Simulated scan of single mutants.
Amino acid sequence: MVLFGTLVNGACIIVGSIIGLFFTKIPERFKETVMHGIGLAVVLIGMQMAFSTESIIVVLMSLLSGAIIGEFIHVEEGLNRLGNWIGSKFTTANEDFSMAQGFITASLIFGIGAMSIIGALDSGIRGDHEVLITKGVIDGFVALVLTTTLGYGVIFSVFSVVLYEGTIAILATQIDNWMSEAFLNGFITELTSVGGLLIIAIGLNLLNLMKIRVGNLLPALITVGIIYYFYELFV
């Protein structure tokens, strides 16, 4: 079953989020310190991913083009509206912002990364779900911690994660017909680096060091493929 690993990943996020709901009443000072710890760990994860690049120009051009597109079409506002719409179905008006923050933050943390892409590709190409199952266990623990501080908006990130990974897994069943293995490996490397920088931005937001509109940088995850193609073609 192509989507087995994706569904396991989603189930782990749900279980972790549900368990985390039982710890949302802890004192604010505990939540603040825990959030700072999460932020530092997220920055570290992002740095490890970002340093994987073999062509900084591809990463830079991807981020610049992604930022322009994201600001032009207002991706961040759209994500906030989606999170608030979901929140309005389950929360009071005063809780909508927290709901959106939990949904967006968790979706980006769980969705952006090498394990999501490589795991989904393995599921689609080889029918090997080990990477996604391992990621699911990790995501479950992260979801638990995030839910204690960001609330139950985290649990709704499962929809974006399953849609994202599931789409990649289904498309991967035909990927051998579209690109060579060498190109695919190089593309994943640069995509991982761009994703790592976005995760660093998430960490900085969690630490309240600055407010980066990460949503408006998300198109970089698409433009990196186009830019890498032309980079390989001409450089």
Rank of each mutant, 00 (worst) to 15 (best):
L204G: 13
E190D: 12
G102I: 09
E165I: 00
K135P: 12
A120M: 07
E95V: 08
G87L: 01
A93F: 03
F183Y: 14
I69K: 04
G225W: 08
V154C: 09
I109P: 04
L197S: 03
Q174L: 10
S180W: 04
Q48D: 14
G20P: 07
V34M: 13
I14W: 00
N205E: 01
I199S: 03
E181Y: 05
G10N: 03
G70L: 01
G215R: 00
A201L: 10
F51G: 08
F72N: 02
G113A: 11
H74K: 15
E32P: 00
K31F: 02
I109V: 11
L79E: 06
L7A: 07
N185P: 00
A120F: 02
L121D: 05
L108A: 02
H74S: 11
G203Q: 10
A106H: 02
N84D: 10
I38W: 13
E54N: 10
A93W: 10
S52D: 05
V2W: 00
K25R: 12
L184M: 11
L163D: 00
W85F: 15
E32H: 06
T167Q: 03
V224E: 05
S62H: 06
L217T: 03
G196T: 01
I109G: 06
G111P: 09
T33E: 10
G151W: 01
G5V: 08
G166T: 06
V75P: 00
I133A: 14
G113E: 07
I155P: 15
I69M: 09
I125W: 05
E28H: 05
I199T: 14
M115C: 03
K31T: 04
Y231F: 14
G102R: 09
I109M: 09
G195K: 02
R29H: 08
G39F: 02
G102E: 07
L197E: 02
